[in-house]
Amino acid sequence: MTKKIAFWIFLLGTLSSAVLFLGLTVDTHRQVAALSHADKLSENVVAGKRAFEKYNCNDCHTILGFGGYYAPDLTKVVQRVGEDGIRYRVKHPELAFANSVRKMPQQHVSEVEIESLVAFFNWVGEIDNGDWPPQDSKKRLSRSEQRLSLGATVSPGAAVFQTKGCMNCHSLHGVGGTFGPVLDTIGRTLTSEQIEQYILNPKSVNPNAKMPPQNGLSDRERDEVAKFLGNLK
C-alpha cells in the first residue's frame, strides 16, 4: 500500500461517514417533532427545562439516561412517584430523604419553578424513546410480574408489590426504600379493605399521608397487593 492509497482511505472513510451522519441528522430533525410530541412543548415545559438546568439537577440525576449516576433516572419520574411526589421531594428534600443514606440539597426552588418542573417531567415522560428505562417499562415489568407470580412461594400481590414501584419508598424485611413507613406488620394496623382504600386515596384514610394516590395500578393489581399486605401480621 502506498501513501497515496492511504490518503484515499482517509478521505473516503471520513466523507462517507460524514455524509451518512449529516443526512440522518436532517431526517432526525424531521421525525423528532412527532417522536417527542413537540406540539405539547409549551412555554411552561421550556421554563421547567430551564429550572432543571438552573439547579444543576442533571449532575446527580440522569434523564433519558444521561447525566450523573448518583440519583434515580428522571425520564419516567411522574409515572414512578407522581406529580405530588415530585413536588414534595423538590420542596422538602431534607424531610423526604431524612432517613435515606443519600441526600438531596435544599435549593429553595420557587413554587412556580416546581410547577414548571412537573410540566417538564410530564412532557419528557411521554417521549417515544424505545421503552427505556426497562425498570419503568409497562411491557417488561408486567412480564417479570407474571414470572414472579408463577413461582410457588410468591403470591400475585407480592409480585405487584415488588414490580410496581412500592419498594421505591416502602421496605419489607429490610429490603426496599426508606422514604415511606416499613410495612413488615402493616396487617396489624390496617385491614386489606383499608389498604385498598389507602392506595386509591391516601388522604381519605390518613389525612397526613404523604403518599400520592397510586393511579397506575389496575383494579386487579390493587386488589391483589392489598390482600397480600393485609395478611402481614
Binding site: 472513510g13 471520513t14 432526525t28
Partner: peptide, 25 residues
C-alpha cells in the same frame, strides 16, 4: 492516514450509539 481514516469512518456515524433511547428514529 489509515488510522485516522478508520477513526473517522467508525467514529462519526458511531455517534448513533448515543441516540438509542433519546426519542430519535
Amino acid at each position: 492516514y489509515v488510522e485516522i481514516g478508520l477513526f473517522m469512518f467508525t467514529g462519526i456515524a458511531g455517534t448513533g450509539h448515543h441516540y438509542y433511547w433519546i426519542g430519535a428514529p
